[in-house]
Each structure stands twice: as C-alpha cells, then as structure tokens.
Design a protein around this nucleic acid. Sequence first.
DNA 1: TTCCAAACGGGAATTCTGTTCCATTAGATG
DNA 2: CATCTAATGGAACAGAATTCCCGTTTGGAA
Lengths: 210, 210
Amino acid sequence: MEQNSRLEAASLTPGTVRPGGRTAKVRAAVLEATQEALIEGGFHALNLDRVAARAGVGKTTVYRRWGSAAGLVADLLRDMAEQSVPAADTGSLEGDLLANARLVHRTLTDPRMGPVFQAVIAAAACDEECARALNGFYATRIRAWAPCVERAAGRGDVPVGTDAGEVVRAVSAPLYYRFAVSREPLHEADAVRAAAVAVTAAKAGSFTRN
Amino acid sequence: MEQNSRLEAASLTPGTVRPGGRTAKVRAAVLEATQEALIEGGFHALNLDRVAARAGVGKTTVYRRWGSAAGLVADLLRDMAEQSVPAADTGSLEGDLLANARLVHRTLTDPRMGPVFQAVIAAAACDEECARALNGFYATRIRAWAPCVERAAGRGDVPVGTDAGEVVRAVSAPLYYRFAVSREPLHEADAVRAAAVAVTAAKAGSFTRN
DNA sequence: TTCCAAACGGGAATTCTGTTCCATTAGATG
DNA sequence: CATCTAATGGAACAGAATTCCCGTTTGGAA
C-alpha cells in the first residue's frame, strides 16, 4: 500500500519524490534555458529538444517532467511568481502608483524581460495551465501593491470602499494594452499618465465597490 | 523586362497578379477556415494542413501563399481591419464611451470572437508581421472612435488639447488587461467602470497633451 | 474565342518534432 | 557505507509537418 502510493506519486509527477540535489539543479538549468529561448525566439519557437540541449540535460528528462512547451512556461511562471519584488511606500498615493507604473514600464521595455512577458502572454493564450499560472502571478503582484491604496484610504486621500486591486490594475492596464494588444511603443510618458489617471479616478471615487 | 517584373511579382507574392475569381475564393475559404481553427484550438494548434483540408483547398496552395501559421493570422487580421464597425454617437461622452466599453466587453466575451482575439494576441507575441497587422487593426478602431472625444471637446465637456486616442485606449485597456494579461473573468461591471474612469480622468484633464 | 502563364492540387520525398526503451547515475533511508 | 529505486541520458523509433515535383485548371489579355 505504502509502496504503491510512492510509486504512484513518482509516475504522476517526476521530480517530487526526490526534490533535492540533482533534480533541483536540473530544474534550475531547464528554466534558465527556457527563459533564454523565449527571449531569443518567443513562445512559438520554444522547442523542448533545444531547451534540453541548452540546459545540458537529456531531452527525455524535459519531456518527462514538463511534457510540452506550455508546461515549461507554466513552471517558469510559478518560479517567477515566487520571486517577490517589494512594493513602494513613498507616503503618497501619487508617489506609490507612479513607482508602480515606472516599474511596469521598466520591466516591459527591458530587452530581456520584455520578450519574456510577450512569451508568457502568448503561452497563456494558447494553454489553460499557463493561463492559470499567469493569473496567479498577477494576483500575487496586485496583492503586493494593494496596501498602497489601502493606506491612502486610511489617510482619507481616496474614499472608503475604494477597490484597491482595481486601482492597481488600472495603473498597469494601459501599459500592458500598448505592449501586448495594440502593439504600440511604450514611452515614459505613458507610465506617468497611467499613474495620474488612476489617482484622479480613485480620488473621484470611480473605483468604489458596489 | 516587363515579362521579368511580372515573373518576379508572381514568384514573390502568389495571388497578386490574378486576384480575381478563383484566387479570391480560395483566400476567403482559407481565412474562414483559419478563424474556425483558431476558435477551436487557438494559435498554437493552428495547422496549415488542417486549414487547407477544412477550406477544401490544396495544402500546397496554403503553404505557398501564406507560408506559416503566423502568415495566416496576419492576413486574417488585415481582413478583419477592413470590416469597419461604426462608432456610437449618443450625444454625451459618457454614453459614447460606455457604448464602446460594452462593445469591447461583448466582443471579448463572445464565444466565437473571444478565442479569435486570444489567438491573434498570441500570434502577435510570436511574430513581427502579426504584431504589425494587429497594430494596424487597433489603429483603425481607435481612429474610428476618437471623434466621440473630439465632439466632447467641442462641447466643452473635456479640456481642449485632450488626446482623443488616449481616452479611447483608456476604455479598452482594463478590459484587455483582464482578458489577455491577468486572465481574470470579465464582467459587465468592468466595462461600466472602465468607461466611468476614462470619463472622470478626461474631464479632469489627465489626458491633455504636453 | 484563343492562348499563355498564374494559380491550384495530389502525392512522394524529406525534414523535423516528439516518444519510448533501457542502461546508468545518484538521492534518500536505515 | 550499503542498498534501493527515483531520476536521468543516449539512442533508436514513430509520426507529423513541410517541401518538392509535376500535371491540371482557369483568369485575363489579345
């Protein structure tokens, strides 16, 4: 019985019974190689065979543990979600949301991070598991930045009942829209405007619940 | 010389020398089949072979004229950009932007159009030609809706110098952000809020140029 | 109406992607 | 430190995607 369950666990998700040492090294190398491949060729060009070669790992291992291009990206997203970046606390809603807008702008225009985000958005559009992973990634980020708005509500800068998450989303949305949807170039001014619009609307009570 | 240029044109872009009759029928059938395939399986599962079969067309033709999955989507996008939908004119900025927000919401949640937009966003993230085509599609839509904001400026509802395009983008952005980036469910309330936020910020002058 | 070549279509040949088998390596447990 | 087996890696294999070849159809100009 006990032996059976161990066998079952192993056959279902390789890499979970012996997570230490080699297995962890392999995962790190594969995710690193995946990210490099996404930067160079995007999601469509992601190839398990080449990822394995670049990671210096047998391709059988990659096929067994991740199964598909989408599986690789989903795992990369889970890895990315764990690396938290601290939210700002400048003392004013304007300052905090501007810091957020600049961070998003800097990330999306970064020559390495930009292509990675293009790729994970594409992967999420192609695969349900990736979509859930991407959703989790942003849920984490939104939760991390919501306190900025809650502090502003505490100071009386925005109405009580303001949906903090919605305000945070409103800052990112115009930047991601240009980046992934309308495919227009992103400028610093877009980040400044996004923050300003969110602050104005929040103070006017456009984000209150109900 | 003349014969040479004709030959060259034919070898470069099949379907441009004799665009009438059969060629046009084949294109229509292939783009229709492409859309159906995207609805069913998304961009990642788009297969030139199956598209050809579904369109009732030789697969050689599809490979020759479109070359790749990205080529098919890019042409589909050019076709979609040509089909214009008229913008609203309700007499108020609130009414016009709410109509726009509802239209976007309805489109993205439509069981057929939703998957198509997921697919073209994914394709644009994978391929430069698709990215340009998608950019052209939204440039057309934004241009079509900008007059709503310009009329509001004429009425004195928003400051002179308000960037009409930016206001229109601001309405779509939160909806597309949920749809394609954070992958959260879209509700009617999101559309209403998006329109309200854009109106509030526009009236406050957050979208003025310079 | 006639003619020419653009565009198409079917099938073979090729290339590339993904899968399976089995021997080898190395965590974990006592 | 000995043992057991999870996890890995190389190689052969199977299957799908793409290209090539060449005959057929058809749009459009004379």
